[in-house]
């Protein structure tokens, strides 16, 4: 499978990455090689094979809904790049 620079630009946008022209060229080549290698999986007939998303036979792990203290806001804010009144500050979402 070969992928184009346009594919790489599309995926970078989905992943919220800003790539330089040099990175775009490099990733186009490298991802192309990795995806070509991944074609190997098509040698296998997996029509009737169930998928494994997880190895443990568990699902919907529930706990009792018991109130307990949350982490204090001051502590949560300790790593905030920018904050105001106990809230994370970001550029305006709507112009």
């Amino acid at each position: 499978m070969s992928i184009s620079i346009r594919d790489v630009e599309h995926v970078a946008n989905l992943a919220r990455l800003e790539l330089t022209e040099e990175e775009k060229a490099k990733y186009t080549e490298q991802l192309g090689a990795i995806l070509a290698y991944a074609q190997k999986l098509n040698e296998l007939d997996t029509e009737d094979v169930p998928q494994t998303s997880h190895v443990l036979p568990i699902s919907n792990v529930m706990r009792d809904d018991v109130p307990r203290p949350s982490t204090p806001i001051e502590k949560v804010m300790l790593n905030a790049p920018d904050e105001e009144d106990g809230q994370f500050r970001v550029p305006a979402v709507l112009e």
Partner: peptide, 12 residues
């Protein structure tokens, strides 16, 4: 970045 790109592609 390479792996995020590969994974995003595989899920797209």
């Amino acid at each position: 970045k390479r792996r995020i790109m590969l994974g995003t592609f595989a899920l797209s």
